[in-house]
């Protein structure tokens, strides 16, 4: 059992939870994730570690309410406990070898680049950040990115904050404007990461993506998280979650991720009595 120490609403359907998990915090690093179960009957769902405090023994996760389990999580309050919290899982991201880095976060994906910019900042490395969302209310960690990024570029679909457009518009803009990044780290919905990878391929810039595939155990036991990277089967939970974006078969990953959507929907209905 792990206690929810604080819960903060970020936007309409995004909440930040600080969870007491000293064992996970102890070895956690940017890029890793946890698998949690909300209660005894819960399914196992993965969440990125957004932040951690080894001394306080806490781990921060950001939860977008999308299905049955995240909805159930959204009903919990400060002081409540969740049944299971296992981690840290996956490999930590290592951007040490790069000098001029661009971090790109789409929607909730910004939660994955946030610990990254913090880590780079603490190492004295400068990096630029592009974040994108449908509208202003869905942009997250805005102040934090302002603090840690060399330059922050915000993009919204409707122009309610930053510039109007997609993150790829901004990246193209920056690259054509003469920015010389040696690494782009992009995290967001699969179609966004695919678009970024397709764009940067032409520029020959190393592009790393974080693959949020469907997981069950998170320890390499089931193969549900598998994806094709450079014609090889890789497991997102143990080999990843980060992979070379130019080698990932995104179409396959998109097909696999869409597979359970219908099942999920019927569960949502049961919880809300049909209201979504």
């Amino acid at each position: 059992m792990n206690k929810i120490l604080s819960r903060k609403k970020f936007s309409e359907n995004v909440n930040e939870y600080v969870i007491s998990a000293p064992d996970v915090a102890r070895r956690a690093d940017a890029g890793q994730f946890v698998i949690l179960r909300v209660d005894e009957e819960g399914e196992r769902i993965p969440f990125t570690i957004c932040d951690f405090d080894r001394e306080a023994g806490t781990v921060t996760i950001l939860v977008q309410t999308v299905g049955y389990s995240t909805m159930k999580l959204a009903t919990l309050k400060e002081g409540d406990c969740i049944a299971d919290f296992a981690g840290p899982l996956g490999k930590a991201t290592d951007l040490d070898e790069y000098e001029n880095i661009l971090l790109v976060g789409g929607g909730i994906g910004s939660a994955v680049i946030y610990p990254q910019i913090k880590k780079l900042f603490s190492k004295g490395k400068k990096a630029d950040v592009v974040t994108g969302a449908r509208n202003e209310s869905l942009l997250i960690y805005r102040n934090e990115f302002k603090t840690y990024a060399r330059n922050l570029y915000e993009m919204t679909d409707d122009g309610s904050a930053g510039e109007k457009g997609f993150v790829t518009d901004k990246i193209r803009n920056l690259l054509d404007g003469g920015e010389r990044y040696d690494c782009i780290f992009a995290v967001g919905p699969l179609p966004m990461m695919k678009a970024v990878a397709n764009l940067t391929r032409g520029y020959g810039i190393k592009t790393i993506v974080s693959m949020n595939t469907v997981m069950v155990d998170g320890t390499g036991m089931c193969g549900s998280c598998r994806l094709t990277v450079g014609n090889e089967i890789r497991y997102a939970c143990v080999d990843g979650p980060e992979f070379d974006g130019h080698l990932v078969d995104f179409d396959e990953a998109i097909a696999r991720n869409g597979f359970y959507r219908d099942e999920e929907r019927s569960h949502v209905c049961r919880l809300t009595g049909g209201v979504r």
Binding site: C222, S224, A255
Partner: peptide, 13 residues
């Protein structure tokens, strides 16, 4: 890797 292909471990788990 088509959706609908499972390892027995995933299916049974």
């Amino acid at each position: 890797n088509l959706p609908g292909v499972y390892s027995a471990n995933e299916y049974l788990t």
